[in-house]
Write a protein that binds this DNA or RNA. Structure first.
Lengths: 337, 337
DNA sequence: CCGGATTCTTGAAACGATTCACTCGTCACA
DNA sequence: TGTGACGAGTGAATCGTTTCAAGAATCCGG
């Protein structure tokens, strides 16, 4: 307690000296207590306590090679969808006493590769990544260097990588079909950049639904690209309303964007769903309690994470899992058609 | 590319051999390129690329001692309040190219100490912790071992530790005074366990406001303890409504709890604010867009995080910063008194 | 052509743990 | 009394970097 803060951390050698044993014995007390005599063990434990010794993780890892940490990179940690996925990862990892480090790429490739490198340098056992772009090469290379890799929330573009995804084309089709069934013939789709695969897939789903209904996407659809958060939604909806003819429905690529859209629609004095219908994506927890309860596409978030974690723990050949989304209809789209 | 995945990672020695130089030179290329001849540098870089060499972070750290990573432990990563704080930390750290590892304690001491230990073993430069309990001893000990420590979202109980907090007593007083001004004389306070200091402080604030109004807390107040999430709010509000006489207002310790409370009130057919007024805490992004826009206590979340990060980076003597909260009045409490 | 600067490069000693081949008593049994 | 087995503990090698004193090579002015 009176030790100066600047003092060097106690090492295993200090403990050994203090307890009057060899370093090997201290290490044994730490890692295989079974083979050390009880009396010796006590003395060593006392020394550990006296010096408040904490083993140096770098040294341990350097020598033994193994860790039980995995890294996760998501697009946006302030989006409840991704925190729920992270929770799923954590829960499954905790079962095997592994731990999770989470990082947020903000959809930027430079941040993604920086974290990827950081994780690799720290020798993580595996990574679960929601990619910021389509290029799988860095992930494949990482995998070839012996690090477990799971692509999260989108199908792996290459067969050599595992992935856990939800069918985004189907989800967007569900939502769009619903809006078409309500008679909307002019729909704004507030989306993120197509470099993010989920955004591209959802766009395809929207187009597919429109085409399947015998309509012309060029007539029906207005796509607006924006940032994937509430502020993005606020801005984008202004653009959407300026389109001619004016859309009667807005489909948002996620619920945060939808939140922003609803906010702007309200300040603009437009009634939802009477004047403008709104549909979101993710069905986050607050969707049901909004001023106008939000129709949204629900995804099995927790399972997404836990399945990915399971793949990293059990290893094995790459597999691609795809879950199916479902549409949760609420007031913002006018209810059941 | 054709290398077997099981192969050992390339080391600096492999690179040195491949490039026909010594390990020292490779290290210099990596860390002080200035002192290496251009031609040599090129050869080494080529070798690095050829072997897809990634330096071993453990070894580097073991030798050099220093890292620029800090760990953060929050109570609940699915609560937007804490992700906003984390974002504040991240933003400030990024300015100095430091990186953040986030972990969620779920309010459990065992998880908190596990992560604390993990961080220390990995040699983090500092930690920012929202403590799960009142005992500062482990944090003080950690600090004495030379790790930077900032207590987040509550005042440090001891002078030796830095902290960045918001005045919780004041925040709760603000909210309660507001409800009293609206004529509520029977108020339910849905709170978390008092072992979490924020919860205890907010309780004190509620009591202070009631007393200051010349009323008897025992008459006015019903406190219900629950989990700090939406599900907790749903349950607790049932208990609150069963109290005799029945409360006409519910003050929730955070907005997630308030979200659950609103949900239950709606399914129970009780009008907000006419039959039951509701006030939350944190003013998360969706508070303004709820079915009944939520009156809430706003805290400077981002600043909380960035200030903490700043303290960790700049070091210096321990200081305790306290921000002031403000009340944002919306419909759920009946608007301005 | 020499001495001294200057510029690069080298090689070996750390860092702090884990691991494993050994040594040293003890004890049981023939 | 000798032998083998067994339980405890030892100590040196090892992991992959960084760092630094010292060596090698080149250059320049006098």
């Amino acid at each position: 307690m009176t030790r100066s803060p600047a003092r060097r951390r106690a090492s295993i050698a200090d403990v050994a000296q203090h307890a009057g044993v060899s370093v090997g014995t201290v290490s044994n007390v730490l890692n295989r207590p079974g083979i050390v005599a009880a009396a010796t063990q006590e003395r060593v434990q006392a020394a550990i306590a006296a010096l408040s010794f904490v083993p140096n993780g770098s040294a341990r890892q350097l020598r033994s090679g193994s860790v039980t940490t995995v890294g996760a990179i998501v697009l946006d940690l302030t989006n409840p969808f991704f925190t729920d996925v992270a929770r799923g990862l954590e829960d499954r990892l905790a079962q095997d006493d592994w731990t999770l480090m989470v990082a947020s790429s903000e959809g930027r490739r430079d941040r993604e590769s920086r974290f990827l490198r950081l994780f690799e340098e720290h020798g993580v056992r595996g990574v679960a990544v929601v990619p910021s772009a389509d290029d799988a090469a860095p992930l494949v290379a990482l995998h070839e260097r012996g690090v477990g890799v799971v692509v999260l929330d989108r199908r792996s573009p290459v067969p050599g990588l595992s992935s856990v995804a939800v069918d985004d084309v189907a989800g967007a089709t569900l939502a769009t079909r619903h809006l078409l069934a309500h008679g909307h013939e002019r729909i704004a789709f507030i989306n993120g950049p197509h470099t993010i695969r989920q955004c591209a897939d959802r766009y395809d789903g929207v187009v597919a639904a429109i085409t399947a209904a015998g309509l012309d996407p060029a007539q029906v659809l207005v796509e607006i690209t924006t940032r994937l958060d509430a502020a993005g939604g606020e801005q984008a909806v202004h653009t959407a309303l300026a389109a001619q003819p004016r859309p009667t429905a807005v489909f948002c690529v996620n619920d945060l964007v939808a939140l922003g859209a609803l906010r702007t629609l309200r300040t603009e004095g437009l009634a939802v769903p009477e004047q403008v219908a709104v549909v979101g994506y993710d069905d986050v927890s607050f969707a049901s309690e909004l001023f106008t309860p939000l129709t949204s596409v629900r995804q099995p978030t927790h399972d997404l994470g836990s399945t990915a974690a399971d793949m990293l723990i059990t290893g094995g050949a790459p597999r691609q899992v795809v879950f199916q989304p479902e549409l949760v209809v609420r007031a913002s789209s006018g209810g059941e058609a």
